[in-house]
């Protein structure tokens, strides 16, 4: 095995890593925000909101990410008449995708909280939204942190697929280096190690966050 190409290409890999992290970070953050909204919609009594959230989640879970990515990448400019940067299309696609999974995780978390908690909050005079914000969601988050961490890692790994629309992430860097150096194998090993460093760091961070949130138990 020969990794000497790294001396020439390591800056490209670092740029790729930066883009992968940016992509995953924004997708996960936005995914959580939309995920909470979708989960609350799905739990609401309004049949329209509920129906929309349920069909959205089913659609996203039932179609390949690659298809969703192409729909956004080619469809969005056509529908809006605007050109978006590739990175933007990638973030949108990953966000829409992960929001559906995160919504289901959050919904399960909210349902796992004893209904006495909501009753106690409401009996003190808190409106529904306030009770959700201060009582239910903080407890739900604590319970779903492991599942959420898992989803974050999935997003980082799945983000490799956006290299296909030309975003310079780790995966695309590996492919370019493979083409330039005629070495099919080693550039991929480097990519794999970089992905692993990112996900392993994240899973350790999540474990620390879990420990801190467990103080009350």
């Amino acid at each position: 095995m020969d990794f000497s190409f790294l001396t020439r290409y390591y800056t490209m890999y670092l740029t790729g890593a930066r883009n992968t992290i940016l992509l995953a970070l924004f997708s996960v953050l936005l995914g959580v925000i939309f995920g909470i909204a979708l989960a609350l919609m799905r739990l609401s009594k309004n049949p329209i909101l509920k129906g929309f959230a349920a069909s959205y989640i089913e659609f996203v879970r039932g179609t390949p990410l690659l298809v969703q990515l192409y729909i956004i990448y080619y469809g969005l400019p056509q529908v809006t008449g605007m050109r978006f940067p590739d990175l933007f299309a990638g973030i949108i696609a990953l966000t829409f995708n992960s929001a559906a999974y995160i919504a289901e995780i959050i919904r399960a978390g909210i349902l796992s909280i004893d209904k006495g908690q909501m009753e106690a909050a409401r009996s003190l005079g808190m409106p529904y939204n306030m009770a959700m914000k201060h009582i239910i969601i903080p407890q739900a988050f604590k319970n779903i942190l492991p599942a959420l961490g898992n989803e974050f890692i999935v997003v980082i790994k799945e983000s490799a697929i956006v290299s296909i629309i030309g975003i310079y992430d780790i995966m695309r860097t590996a492919n370019i280096v493979r083409g330039n150096t005629y070495r099919p194998f080693e550039p991929l090993i480097v990519a794999a190690i970089m992905y692993f460093i990112i996900t392993f760091t994240l899973s350790n961070l999540m474990r620390m966050a879990e420990r801190r949130l467990r103080t009350g138990d």
């Binding site: 009753e119 009996s123 003190l124 138990d217």
Partner: peptide
């Protein structure tokens, strides 16, 4: 909600908020 403010309720299962300290439970 206004009505419930005037009416305290105590439950069989206590239903304290487990993620908060006693003080926060009372002051929230």
């Amino acid at each position: 909600n206004k009505h419930r403010e005037k009416m305290g309720m105590v439950f069989q299962q206590f239903n304290l908020f487990p993620h908060m300290t006693v003080l926060d439970n009372v002051t929230l």
